[in-house]
Design a protein around this nucleic acid. Structure first.
Lengths: 200, 200
DNA sequence: ACCTGGTTTAACCATATGGTTAAATTTTCG
DNA sequence: CGAAAATTTAACCATATGGTTAAACCAGGT
């Protein structure tokens, strides 16, 4: 940690604190402490909390959404896409478990904040996946399904167990370790569930 | 609003503010304003912000979880349960759209806070639903599925579109009205999707 | 040796915020 | 009516917090 440049240390510390406590709960002092520097230097690099937050938020968001959309736009079969998505995405989320809740939370609190510059990169072309679903349906490989529901179902089953982890842990009477195993199981379970539903 | 008793007005105002802004973002002054009273009276009824928050949080949680669990424990068929759940729950969430995010957020921030007194009422008996799934599978009505994945899949598909509403609205290029219609569609779509997956 | 930019120290400021207090006023109700 | 409870007013307090400032310190590079 010590050999990182200050700006990097700040960014990293800010990420941690903001992800854990959100914009409102985060304290500039804690970010400075965690970065191993002092408040003066913190403001030397980032003029304000808002600015620092924006910077973290945008970076996280750009790291978060395109990961999904790219896969949807690829040229594999629906079945392959479902598998890849569940697999890649779960791995990614296991490394960033607070990310979905962070993004969704700040998004809900200020829906406008997001859609300034980022717009382009986080749009998903629904037609692409819609056409593919229709085509594979005509070929008799799957049943016909509305792409919006298909996407929502899939993403929900993948992401929600992370957002709601404390709840599921409690309901299932798991400890964190066991819950991790459970999430691993879902990398196979979710695609199986989805493809079973799509089977003709 | 004027004819409510002060304590009720406070509770209602606090619910609104806490749900919208979370514990950290909420301001006692705003709660007082929204309740149409003054800060002094606010503290006259609730000694501290923490106490007021707890009170709101617990009430909301007790309103939130048992609604699901009861249905799971009933004696209808799996198919009926899936339909009832999707239907009732979506209606409930449409009236309380910020609730899931609020509960999950505060839960994640302080996982301990929840599990003091409430414990009993929010536990779900996994065995009940597990046995039913097994029985119906043996009767050849559905395929066999792990109850933990069954539940997670179902709840995820129902709840997540509320938690992630700003995102879906953007991705689907909907306005709020259209998104409401979409959520209504899902009351049929989700059970159909689930039952299709469970069909033998 | 010196210049420059990064970094620390430490004091400081304005404001927001949760919370308190005491007295005055209004409402409720026996 | 009259006492008790509810409510307002308005000032006040302590603390936390984001942010600033100025001077000093330290490092690397020329």
């Amino acid at each position: 940690m010590t050999d990182l440049k200050a700006e990097e240390k700040i960014k990293k510390a800010a990420s941690e604190v903001f992800l854990l406590k959100g914009m409102d709960g985060a304290r500039m002092q804690e970010i400075a402490d965690r970065a191993g520097i002092n408040k003066a230097l913190l403001h030397y690099y980032y003029r304000s909390k808002e600015q620092l937050f924006q910077s973290v938020f945008e970076e996280k968001l750009l790291n978060f959404l395109p990961k999904i959309f790219q896969i949807f736009h690829g040229d594999q079969s629906i079945e392959e896409k479902v598998h890849v998505l569940a697999d890649r995405y779960k791995d990614f989320l296991k490394l960033n478990p607070e990310l979905p809740h962070f993004v969704l939370g700040e998004l809900q609190r200020r829906p406008d904040r997001l859609f300034a510059k980022i717009d382009a990169r986080l749009s998903m072309n629904l037609d692409v996946i819609g056409l593919q679903l229709k085509k594979e349906a005509q070929e008799g490989r799957i049943r016909l399904i509305d792409p919006k529901h298909f996407i929502a179902n899939l993403i929900s089953m993948i992401v929600f167990p992370f957002v709601a982890s404390p709840l599921f842990i409690k309901v299932f009477n798991y400890d964190k370790e066991e819950y991790f195993d459970y999430l691993d199981q879902r990398k196979k379970e979710v695609p199986a569930f989805v493809m079973a539903s799509l089977s003709v």
